[in-house]
Structures are given as C-alpha cells and as structure tokens.
Design a protein around this nucleic acid. Structure first.
Lengths: 146, 146
DNA sequence: TATTGTTATACTCTATAACTATA
DNA sequence: TATAGTTATAGAGTATAACAATA
C-alpha cells in the first residue's frame, strides 16, 4: 500500500520547514560560544568513528584539505584533538579527539536532548505523539541517505 | 494520556540526530553555489513577510546590524533585494526582495522538496508512513518554539 | 608520479567599536 | 539624547593555487 501521490508535495514542504526550524533551534544550544558548528561536527565524527586522517575528515565533512587543516589547528590549540604522524605512512597525520573534546561533544548532545525533552514535557505530548516522533526520526534518517 | 517518561530521552536523541542529518542533506541543495545559507534565509524572510528594515532583519536572523548591512550589500549587488529610504523616518532603510530574489527562493525550495519527494518515492513509503512524517513535522514545529 | 598535508591568499559571515544622519 | 544604519577592523571558515614531504 503505497502513499497517494498527492500527499507527497505537502508532506515534503511541511517536513522541510520543520526540519530547518528545529535544526536551527537545536544548533543554538552550545556548551561554549567559541565552538563553531564545523568544529563540533569534527569532534562528533572523531568521537563516533575514532582516529582519522586530515583527508578522511575533509571528505567526510565535505570541505577541502586546507579547510580541514585550519579547523584542526583551532581544535588542537584548544586541546580538543591531537595530531600524530602515522608511522606506516609518514605523509599522514592521524587526528584523535581528547578527553576534553569528548566532554564537549557529550555535554552539547546532553543539553540539546534536554531542550527536546523539556519541550516534549511542556507540550504534554501523548504516548502516541512521542511514538510518531520516534518513527519519523527513523524515516528522516532514511530520507537523508538519498 | 501523557507519554511514559522513559521514552523521552531515546526519542530526543533519535530526533536530534535525524533532524541534523536531514537538515544537512537539504542544505546541500542550492540553486547557485554562491548563495549562502545566511543570504537565502534573508530572502526567505522577505518573501514571506514583505519589506523589512535592516534592524528588523538583524533581530529576526539573530545577527548584529553591521552583519545585516553586509549581507544586504551582497544581495543588493546581485540584484536580489533593493534598498529604499523610508520617507516617514529617513534614518530607516526598507529592504525589498526583487523578482529575481523570489525566483531564487522558490527554485531552492522546489529543488529541496523534489529531493524529499524523490526519496519518499524511492523508499516506497506507505500512506501511514507519509502521514507519520506529516504529523511529526507539525510536532517538530511546536518543539522548535520552546 | 601520485598522494598527504601545509602555506599563501582571498572572499564571506560574523562580531565590536566608532561614526553619521535623523528623530 | 536616542535610534538606524554604515564604516573600520578583526577573527573564523571557506575556497583555490602552489608548495614540501613522502610513497
């Protein structure tokens, strides 16, 4: 039982608007004002996937290698990542997230989740509405992969 | 019938991740590479709400007045907005979006919606799943207001 | 030669401070 | 005096081009 074609455009428009609004609201929530989105994204990637080279990080974040060098410089100065020359291939630089870096990521995610949980409580969402959000999140993840 | 407390944290985490992923995917879709997110947001606001002063735009986009002046300079050079001195209060500058500016906004939204519609079709979402996204969008909009 | 990363340079977006014009 | 907007200046993030070190 596929969806009726006429429902798709309206759903797309609603979902586009809501996604940007909520992302914007969540992005405001930071641990430190000095942490940019770009820096936070790198820390999150390193925390999730472990050490990565500059080139690998640049490809994942879809920026150029010089841009990633600059980003890593800033994070390194703040003690949030470390650089290590790869012994097997001395052209390569392995980047690791430090404990401090992991702390930033985890506190940021925690605060953002607290905002969402607080909002869900204030709106007194029903069990069904929470379930809708849960299922929608899974669907949105699949949509984003296309 | 309020939601069980234990479902909220997991839902918050899923929704946070999915929202950022989908927003990021959609943000990639632009009409012109030269259009930044900041410029597009201003054009969208003007298209939706009509003429606005520099100060009003700065407050809405949560940037400083000098930043908005700079943004408007760039948009004006591209012929996407016009400046008009307010006759009632000659300190004020009214900014209007041009037809070209409206075209950029509409083509961008159209392309982003096409991406979502295409993805929903490829995934062969059921009528129920489309309905879930529709309802979730409304809920996300309310969450973002908190 | 090809790859990895950095440096040099430039443009945009952001900010704060200081300024001009107007109310 | 207060407000609206601009200019001056600086810092971060982005890019391309050119370079050094290594494979």
């Amino acid at each position: 039982m596929s969806a009726p074609v006429e429902a798709l455009p309206a759903t797309a428009a609603d979902l586009r608007l809501a996604t940007f609004r909520l992302a914007r609201r969540l992005r405001c929530v930071r641990v430190a004002d000095s942490m940019s989105d770009a820096q936070l994204a790198v820390l999150m990637t390193l925390r999730l996937h472990g050490r990565r080279t500059i080139t690998a990080l640049a490809e994942r974040e879809r920026v150029t290698a010089p841009s990633m060098t600059s980003l890593i410089n800033g994070l390194e100065e703040q003690g949030l990542v470390t650089r290590t020359t790869d012994d097997d291939d001395r052209r390569r630089v392995q980047v690791d997230v430090t404990e401090a870096g992991i702390g930033i990521v985890e506190r940021t995610m925690q605060r953002r989740d607290e905002l969402l949980i607080g909002a869900m409580r204030e709106l007194e969402l029903t069990a069904r509405e929470v379930q809708i959000l849960r299922e929608a999140a899974a669907l949105m993840g699949r949509l984003a992969e296309r």
